[in-house]
């Protein structure tokens, strides 16, 4: 039948159909290639835009603590410090909470409850950053200023981590708001990694007499560790690049402080605050170079996260 059809059918028609497929492939490829072109455009523009400061300061840009737009002296260290510190503080809070919640959702909760709670967590991930900032300014900052920071000073005032006046804003406040913004990611990705652990692993542990917790903590969690690590890195990448909420509560002080309750600055926040009023070419270039640094930082973290998630859940960019 098939061969008969092939003989009867005019060859021209087969050719034109082949042409249609080639055309469709070429047409859609143009759009796919645009993704690569746009990503390269981002890198190229950041590189190009930061030429003046890259040439003037070289690597000292990354190690200098001086940020003075008036005298055209620019160093990124206070911002890098603030970005990394606030993100780590965020992870310190969100990793235990997020992984704990993910364990509950994948191991204990009934599927119906687990699905509805996960749905709510995903809604939380959809809340715009500026809304977190709005809430933080009017609720978290007064709370920190009046109760938390004075309390911390009273309890741990002997250590340099908790000294200085309580303004309400600062590294710790930013870290807390970033924690709330990152745990939706940690929960949903960790939950998937945990759910990808084969049933037999749990059953074998339980059959040997392990309690539910022992089976979860000693067998299931280690099995899914790469995926959980991936979720943490994903959360970290998000925290590093987070702009609005942090800008509204960080305190805008371009210096390095040991005290967690003191105001500071992050890369994203200084770009958001100073870019529109960048006074000269050098100032603008310094801010673009900060963008380049932030870009590089998040790309490395994101890349690591992708690899780990792919290795455990088989999802991500390697497989579709």
């Amino acid at each position: 039948m098939a061969t008969h059809a092939a003989i009867v059918r005019p060859t021209i028609k087969t050719k034109s159909r082949l042409g249609g497929d080639e055309l469709a492939k070429a047409f859609t490829f143009l759009f796919a290639a645009l993704i690569i072109a746009l990503t390269l455009l981002v890198v190229w523009q950041l590189w190009l835009g930061s030429t003046p400061t890259r040439e003037k300061f070289g690597f000292t840009f990354l190690t200098s603590q001086l940020w003075n737009p008036v005298t055209d002296e620019f160093g990124a260290l206070p911002f890098i410090y603030g970005t990394v510190l606030t993100s780590l503080l965020a992870l310190l809070i969100s990793v235990p909470l997020g992984v704990g919640a993910a364990i509950y959702l994948s191991e204990l909760a009934l599927p119906k409850l687990s699905n509805s709670l996960t749905f709510l967590v995903e809604l939380l991930a959809a809340v715009p950053s500026v809304i977190f900032g709005l809430l933080a300014i009017f609720t978290l900052v007064p709370l920190m200023r009046d109760y938390v920071q004075p309390g911390l000073k009273q309890a741990f005032g002997f250590s340099p981590l908790f000294t200085g006046p309580a303004f309400g804003v600062g590294y710790l406040t930013a870290g807390i708001i970033l924690a709330v913004m990152t745990f939706p990611f940690i929960i949903s990705v960790s939950r998937e990694a945990l759910m990808a652990v084969p049933r037999e692993q749990r059953e074998a542990a339980l059959a040997l007499g392990a309690t539910k917790w022992e089976s979860t903590w000693q067998i299931v969690v280690p099995f899914a560790r790469l995926g959980i690590m991936g979720s943490v890195f994903l959360g970290l990448a998000r925290a590093l690049g987070e702009t609005m909420a942090v800008t509204m509560v960080i305190g805008n002080d371009p210096k390095i402080h040991a005290s967690l309750i003191s105001p500071g600055y992050t890369i994203a926040a200084v770009v958001a605050n100073e870019f529109t009023e960048a006074s000269g070419q050098m100032h603008a270039s310094a801010l673009v170079e900060l963008g380049l640094v932030l870009f590089a930082l998040t790309m490395v973290i994101n890349g690591l996260a992708q690899v780990m998630i792919v290795l455990t859940t088989g999802k991500g960019s390697a497989k579709a």
Partner: peptide
């Protein structure tokens, strides 16, 4: 396909403030 997929995820992961800088320069 892998390269484009990976690049798309990369583009998706770029902090929004950096996207703002690029739109400004372009």
């Amino acid at each position: 396909g892998f390269v484009i997929r990976y690049t798309a995820d990369l583009l998706n992961g770029i902090p929004s403030i950096v996207i703002g800088i690029v739109a400004w320069t372009v």
